[in-house]
Design a protein around this nucleic acid. Structure first.
Lengths: 227, 227
DNA sequence: AAGATGGTTCGGCTAGGATCGAACCATGAA
DNA sequence: TTCATGGTTCGATCCTAGCCGAACCATCTT
């Protein structure tokens, strides 16, 4: 068995906790800097630097240098696909790191996932959005339709994407608690910001929990869930 | 970053040369004994036994005990799929072990890949199918068109997919020898079964080689290749 | 210019795990 | 029973690779 693609090499690369953390983080958020990744993986800068060098060398991630920052991202769709396959198997075989779904009801219901909303509410909302045709969904790709644009603008969400052109307007992000997708990308982030600004919700101190006010939840459900 | 499926665990499991050899061997051949696998991976019995215990424990492989033999096989379709993803990434990033294509002509021409046909014939046939519009191919997704359905039914291939609904009707599978795709999924498996049943081909004992009879090959070329 | 921050390189420490020799149990054949 | 074969368990060895401290370079700010 000396022939064939060298599976073990790339698998071993993913088979380290720190590097796996890097990759999953990059899967959720498109581009992160080395120090952010160090924080996420819980190791020092030197260590993360070494890991990133290996991932770069192996062609699993790519990098954009901007000033003194280096933004890392997954090298391609195939890597993201591979990671999802891994998650699927890990999930089936019960290899969940601790608990797959947060046990605190508040966390399960609504929480921050990097810069956008995740949790049951987010998943339900995203599915309703798809039903209403706000997005054109293809395999792993998502684009805003005219109806979607109008709907978001109607509630004051800025869909013009002020950020860099590198960042996709909208993306779906896998929610490992729910095993379903929710909205990420520029629009996802803008939506969460809008919810904060409108007083619908605020982020709980030192936690990923997003607390919805009574009126906030009512409004959210009316806009996104009720049919 | 403590939650989510424990990717690193399963990746690390595949990230060892001996275990990767085991898994790729099981992907090509359905069931192998421990000593056969030891020979393939080039390690001793004790070592392979330890590896197999780990793979079993992790739920990546399963075992059938028959007498004093233990036949190992992949635990499920998701594992096979994961391995394919790995091969794809490994291939793109140039991590090829040595030579990718089997040297025996018979193996190169037609062989079994899990449960469907692979090799030069399979690749050529799949490309002809695509040309004729039997499938609608999008990014990583494949669906049978009306024309395709009719064509398969005409030669007695059951495309109604009796299996579970989780299994995709048709998929493309990367042929590491050819670096091109061939047909997999429910239809791919059904096609191979049909070829066996029609007497076009039979599987060679103790080998992945698929032997086509003279009439079988003629019929195959007429149906799939000639234009 | 001085400081702060992002990132890399180098060297040494350490732990985890892959490997094998040897002994051992289980099954089937003579 | 005796022998051969398939497979596992245990213990010891050895090496890889992850990790951090310290020092360093690069970029941006004041």
């Amino acid at each position: 068995m000396k022939d064939g693609p060298h599976i073990a090499r790339v698998a071993a690369l993913i088979g380290d906790n720190a590097r796996a953390d890097i990759l999953t983080a990059l899967m959720a958020d498109r581009a992160l800097t080395a120090t952010e990744l160090a924080g996420i993986a819980g190791v020092t800068k030197q260590t993360i630097s070494g890991h990133l060098a290996k991932l770069l060398d192996a062609g699993l991630v790519e990098v954009d240098a901007q000033g003194r920052h280096r933004y890392f991202r997954l090298a391609g769709r195939d890597v993201a696909h591979l990671l999802e396959s891994l998650m699927g198997v890990a999930f089936r075989t019960g290899a969940v790191r601790l608990r797959s779904s947060p046990r605190e009801p508040a966390l399960r219901k609504a929480r921050v996932c990097y810069d956008h909303l995740a949790g049951e509410l987010a998943v339900a909302a995203f599915e309703a959005m798809l039903m209403r045709g706000w997005f054109a969904a293809r395999v792993g790709e998502l684009s805003l339709t005219g109806a979607g644009r109008a709907a978001f603008e109607a509630i004051g969400v800025d869909v013009s994407v002020p950020g860099s052109s590198r960042r996709p307007v909208c993306r779906m992000c896998l929610d490992w608690g729910e095993r379903r997708h929710h909205l990420a990308g520029g629009v996802g982030a803008a939506l969460l910001q809008r919810m904060y600004a409108a007083g619908w919700a605020h982020r709980q101190k030192d936690s990923r929990v997003v607390v919805l006010s009574a009126e906030g939840e009512k409004a959210f459900r009316e806009v996104f869930l009720l049919d």
